[in-house]
Amino acid sequence: MSTCVIFGGAGFIGSHLARRLLATGRFDRVHLADLQGSELDGGDGVSASITDVRQGIPEDLVPEVPEWIFNFAAVHREPGHEAAEYFDTNLAGARNVARYAEAVGCPNIYFTSSIAVYGPTMGATDESAPVCPVSPYGGSKYPAELIHEHWQATRPGRRLITCRPGVIYGPGDPGNILRMIRAIKRGYFAYPGSPMVSKSYGYIEGLLDSIEFVMDRSEPLIRYNYVEHPTEPLGDLVRHVKAHMGSRAPVQIVTGGRGPIHPVRVKKAARPTHIVPRTLIDMGFDFRFDFASSLTDWQRQAPEDFN
């Protein structure tokens, strides 16, 4: 029986990946290991466990040797946590997942890092850019990458795929993009800075496409950025949302105190993120979605998100 284990499997990316893997039949069993239960638990081909990656992971988590481990478990929301929490979870989680893979003999790991490892990206930034994190989240993610890379390098035949995604959005996620959509719909959205600031985002279905794409390759180590290509200015994203929603609400360039938005998030929204997924481009990956088409697909899947 072919099995994979998804650490962080009850989260946004983990849940969507589980559904995709079950739909495509890539594995006979998908095991979701998370601190909380999953609505997918009990379905055909799905098992689940309450698992804390900060603690030792039992070798009998699943009866078979998993073909793949997906490590999405992380503390990532900014703001929302003390600095030490990012390191306590993200580094301990990386070590324990690598130890589990070592103990059970799993040959393949897919790990999600973050574009936060680059720090501020004033210009176009691809995988060749130096790592310079400025936040506790980014500062915890880069050494977590190195822990996984050590696991991969210590024995021939192991494969590691490290993805550095931008902000991922889509059906069921109440994050930045949905907040922007609802603010525009309600008429209180205001640019936190210039409408021309570059903002790189990744649609969940495109990310899943990339996961399957790189899994089917043969390189022992792949490190890649995931955002939709090309990156668009914030003003264009707003125009796409307004066109999709049929909104005529005015948009200003000052917050005016009208929206209940945390000041740290305002600063983050004003900061440019211009990420280039050069590795995928060079590999010939097909980016199926731009921002406008992702909104259409999102509403098709989850119209309730737009109500």
Rank of each mutant, 00 (worst) to 15 (best):
W68R: 08
I204R: 01
E145L: 11
T121F: 07
V264W: 01
L35F: 02
I109E: 01
R54V: 10
G119L: 12
G42N: 08
P230E: 10
Y188G: 00
G9L: 08
T3V: 15
Y191K: 08
S114Y: 02
A144F: 03
I168N: 02
Q252P: 00
G123V: 09
I13K: 02
N71D: 13
F287S: 09
A243R: 15
V46A: 05
G157L: 10
I161N: 02
T24S: 15
V65G: 05
E59C: 06
G93M: 08
R258G: 09
S247W: 01
S38K: 07
G43S: 14
P230H: 10
V214E: 09
D41E: 15
A83E: 13
D126R: 08
D209A: 11
G80C: 13
L160I: 14
S113Y: 04
A84E: 13
S294Y: 03
P165C: 05
Q55C: 09
A243D: 13
I6T: 07
R265N: 11
P133A: 12
P58A: 15
L61F: 06
V254D: 11
I177T: 12
L22Q: 11
H76K: 13
L160E: 06
V197R: 15
R158T: 12
W298G: 04
G139H: 06
A10K: 06
L207C: 07
M1L: 12
S194M: 11
A98P: 01
R95F: 11
R19L: 13
Y201R: 15
P107W: 05
V276Q: 06
T255A: 13
T89D: 04
G93I: 09
Q299W: 02
Y142C: 08
A153H: 12
R271P: 00
F111W: 01
G14P: 02
A144H: 05
S128E: 09
L40K: 07
V53R: 03
S113H: 05
R77C: 00
P192C: 10
T121G: 07
V104S: 06
Y191R: 08
G11H: 04
G11M: 09
P174I: 08
F70R: 07
F72I: 08
A269Y: 07
C4V: 15
V131F: 06
Y118S: 01
G105V: 13
L40I: 11
M283Y: 12
F189I: 10
S128F: 00
T125E: 11
Y118F: 14
A270F: 06
I211N: 05
L160M: 10
V65A: 06
E102K: 15
I161S: 03
G139T: 09
I109L: 06
G119D: 05
Y226Q: 12
E102P: 07
V75K: 06
S198C: 07
I161P: 02
I184D: 01
F111A: 06
G170T: 09
P143A: 10
S294E: 03
S15T: 15
R300N: 11
I181H: 02
I168A: 03
P233Q: 10
A94T: 08
G246V: 11
W298N: 06
M180T: 14
S247D: 04
N90H: 05
D305N: 07
P156D: 14
L295H: 02
L237G: 02
I222Q: 08
E145G: 11
A84S: 10
G43R: 14
D209I: 04
S135M: 10
G170I: 10
N71V: 05
P66H: 08
K242N: 05
I6F: 01
D52A: 07
I177H: 01
D28F: 01
R19M: 12
Y100W: 09
